[in-house]
Each structure stands twice: as C-alpha cells, then as structure tokens.
Design a protein around this nucleic acid. Structure first.
Lengths: 151, 151
DNA sequence: ATTGACGTTGACGTTAACGTTAACTTTTAA
DNA sequence: TTAAAAGTTAACGTTAACGTCAACGTCAAT
C-alpha cells in the first residue's frame, strides 16, 4: 500500500500537466518529498492538489487557494485565518450573485432583441406594407438600445 | 446640448482611464470621430462603452463584448450571430450555476470545518483528555474533505 | 550499448487588459 | 504671451497561469 504517487500519475489522475504541478510547487502550494532528485507525492499532496483544482473551478486564484490550503493545514489551530477566509468566500458568493443578476438583465434584453429580430424576419417574408403601422427600423433600434451607426 | 464628449469626460463618467478608452478603440470596440487629431465621442459611443463595461461586470472578455456590440449594430439584420450569442450567454450562465453549486459545497465544508475548529477551541480550554477520542489532524482532514470524489 | 520512457531544472513565450513613462502637439486660462 | 491642462502616438512593463522548448540525468528492457 505505497501511499505515494509520481508526478505524472497525479497529472494523469487530475487531467493536468506535469508542468502545472511543478508550477504549483514553485508557488508553494505543494511540497512533495524528494527521493534523490525526483518528486514523491503523498496523500496529503493529493488532497492539496484537489483543493487547488476545486479552487480553480470556483474561480479562485492560486493565491486564494493557497490560503484555503493553509487553513486545512493547521499546525497550531489558527481560527483567525479561518474566519477571514469564510468572509472572503462570502464576498465571492455575493459577487457571483450580483453577476447572476446582471446576467439576468442582459438575458431579458437579449430576449427582447430576439423578438424584434423575429418580427423583422416576418416582415421580410411579407410584402412590406408601407403604412400598416409606422415603426421604422431605426425606431425599433432605439426601443432596444440606443445604438445607431454612422460612418 | 452638444451631444459629444471628450475622452476624459467619458473616462470620468465611467470611472475608467483614458488609456482604457483608447485601448477599446484600438480593439475596434469604439470608433469615435476625429476633429483634427482629437477624438470626439457621440452618444452611440457612450452606449457602446456602457455595453463594454457591463460585459466586464458579467465576466465577459472584450472579444465577447465586441460580439454583443456587433449584435446591437446590424446593418443587415443578421439573425445567426444573435442566435450564437444567445447560446454563448446561456453557456456562461450554466457555468455560473455550476460554480455556485461547487461554492455551496465548499461553504458547507467550511461550516463543518468551523464546527471542528470550535470543538478544538473548546477542548483547548479544558484539560486535554488524553485518550478521549484520538483524532489526528490528518484524520480530521479526511473527515472534512472526503464528502465526495469526482472530477 | 542503445533506446525509450520518464524525470529534472531553467528560461523564454503567450494572452488579456490595461498601466506607465516618454516625447510631442493642441487647447484653454490667466 | 505664456504656461498649464489635456490630447496624441508609440512602445515597453505587468500579472497569472501555465505552454513550450532545450539540454540533461536515470533506469529498465532489449
């Protein structure tokens, strides 16, 4: 039950390159042992790597992940960092929520644009009834968003 | 009433630098007129800039924002791009949702960690019962992190 | 002994989105 | 008129997170 891994084993397992792993070590996120010149990764290293990658999926920077990892690695039980981190995550979360809100706005605008577009396509298919209901294309544009183009 | 702005007016209004604005122009996101050598921004430029900045808040790249802006700027009514864009946004949204899910997981783990931490602090205050329940820090790590495996 | 797979350390390249001088011209205010 | 304020282009600098060589060591198998 050799609890150890080689660099390419880890790379394989997590679908990343060895370069990335060495980079993480360079940044102090991993500290594998050495046997001669070669790196030997133990279970704790795997755990750290997992945390790093999850951090990435969450949009955290390596530096941020480094803090989290520091938290999971308490020699003395440091509560303060933990609190700070929880707050940081909270902020991240609020940011995400804000993003979602803005995204929702944008989506509804896109929907509106799509409707306009469909209408336009319909009219295209028909013989253009000149005075049916006066709504110029420029007028429509303004309804959606005030973008006019010149040049 | 002159519908035009100078570069630093816009910069001021949107809280960005003139350098940024020139950069956007360089990237083709803005095409202000010139009077002599100086840039003159009209209302449409302001609108474009607004779109760019909203894109940024949404985490879009300038290139992505460029597409959106292109969409709001149809010479002929190009529906295809619009469709593609809606889909791109949709993907973005799904990505955000995924992130939120992972974030939720992480938060609950953090909660668990906090509980452990509190317990530890409590025990710290009391006379350490040597053999109460031997739980090494590595063991705690496992307790916390092994909620799932995936990836 | 050679090959090939794997490992190692540099070190330079890349992309995005500007920041930061630098050197100069134009506009505006006193 | 002159000096400050604002504008211009050009070009190099920066950060993050690696990718991509290069040049070399090591070991098992042929």
């Amino acid at each position: 039950m050799s609890d150890t891994h080689t660099i390419s084993q880890l790379a394989q397992e997590f679908g990343i390159t060895t370069r990335a792993i060495r980079f993480y070590e360079e940044k102090g996120l991993l500290q594998p042992k050495r046997v001669g010149t070669q790196r030997v990764f133990h279970h704790s290293d795997r755990t750290r790597l997992k945390l790093i990658l999850r951090g990435k999926r969450l949009g955290l920077s390596l530096e941020e992940s480094a803090e989290i990892i520091g938290m999971y690695n308490p020699e003395g039980n440091n509560r303060k960092q933990l609190q700070a981190l929880i707050q940081a995550i909270q902020l991240k979360r609020e940011h995400l929520l804000q993003q979602q809100k803005e995204l929702a706005d944008l989506l509804s605008e896109l929907d509106a644009a799509e409707v306009q577009c469909s209408k336009a396509l319909l009219k295209e298919g028909k013989p253009a009834r000149k005075n049916a209901r006066p709504k110029s294309s420029t007028e429509k544009n303004n309804t959606i968003k005030n973008t006019r183009r010149k040049s």
